[in-house]
């Protein structure tokens, strides 16, 4: 088995939105970030992977079909969804007690060690927890049955930089075992720049690309120039452009090749944010 997750031709139709031929692969031992604007389909993909919603197509986790082997697979995956799914009157202790009966591999000791690490009191009800504490509790719960794949929907949104960096450190520890992989969707693309191996970009229900984060950050670039320079650039040498009041911003796929061909001064490094904005808002 070389892939943690394989998605092929997944389609899902809602009245006003559809996923079309979604296809990507997450190799084992790697971290993939799922990016896209609000409503692009990130959560729908995650829900399909978890078999929470109906879809057509083929999704395999650890080479097994989720529709056929759901119970077996769910023993091996840890999930954090965007909305908290624990009743507010429960305490972490109650969660510990119920998870024992849900997961064969539930590890109370590990769960408690995460609670200590996150300074969460085991006997306080969830309703007394702040948003960050709730997220930490969800992540602790997702990790405490020794999963091999973490699937996380916006695990770091709404959290302060310190908590986010703690959570990223936990993800880093998690993939020290090369059997373990992570798929997470987020809007906080700076988190991905620090941790993701692959980026899958989804727009309007379709996959735009899956690429290594290194390739995107090292090779892609933004050219900034004036109109008369822009006019000289061959259409096939850029992906998208945006006309601003004082300049043109042009998204290019390979800074080195571009520099060889054109003598334009300003070629900036991109961030994933720039990339998203230009891919979605830019013209061709």
């Amino acid at each position: 088995m070389t892939n943690a997750l394989e998605i092929k031709n997944v389609n899902k139709k809602y009245s006003d939105f559809e996923l079309r031929n979604v296809k990507f692969t997450l190799p084992k031992g790697m971290i993939m970030g799922l990016i896209g604007s609000n409503g692009a389909g990130k959560t729908t993909i995650i829900k399909s992977i978890l078999n929470i919603i109906n879809y057509t197509g083929n999704i395999k986790i650890f080479d097994l079909d989720i529709k056929e082997k759901e119970d077996e697979i769910k023993e091996e995956i840890g999930v954090v969804l965007d909305d908290m799914f624990f009743p507010e009157i429960l305490t972490p202790n109650d969660i510990d007690n119920s998870m024992k009966y849900i997961f064969k591999n539930w590890d109370s000791k590990l769960f408690n060690s995460y609670l200590t690490k996150f300074s969460l009191n085991i006997n306080n009800p969830i309703k007394t927890f702040s948003k960050g504490m709730r997220k930490k509790l969800e992540i602790a719960t997702a990790l405490s049955h020794h999963p091999k794949l973490l699937i996380l929907d916006e695990p770091t949104s709404g959290l302060d930089p310190v908590v986010r960096s703690e959570i990223l450190d936990i993800f880093r520890d998690f993939i020290q075992n090369d059997e373990c992989s992570i798929l997470f969707s987020t809007h906080i693309t700076t988190d991905l720049e620090k941790i993701a191996d692959y980026i899958t970009f989804i727009n309007d229900g379709q996959i735009v690309f899956t690429k290594t984060c290194d390739e995107l950050l090292n090779q892609y670039g933004i050219v900034k120039c004036m109109e008369k320079e822009f006019q000289k650039i061959d259409k096939k040498d850029y992906l998208k452009y945006q006309k601003n009041k004082y300049d043109y911003e042009i998204l290019i796929e390979n800074k080195k090749d571009f520099k060889k061909k054109y003598s334009i001064e300003v070629i900036d490094k991109i961030t994933l944010d720039d990339l998203m904005v230009l891919m979605i808002k830019g013209e061709k």
Binding site: R172, A196, D197
Partner: peptide
Amino acid sequence: IRSLARDLKCSVITTKN
């Protein structure tokens, strides 16, 4: 590869490269 990535706070593919 993995521990270096963790400690340098970069991705595994980066240290692998």
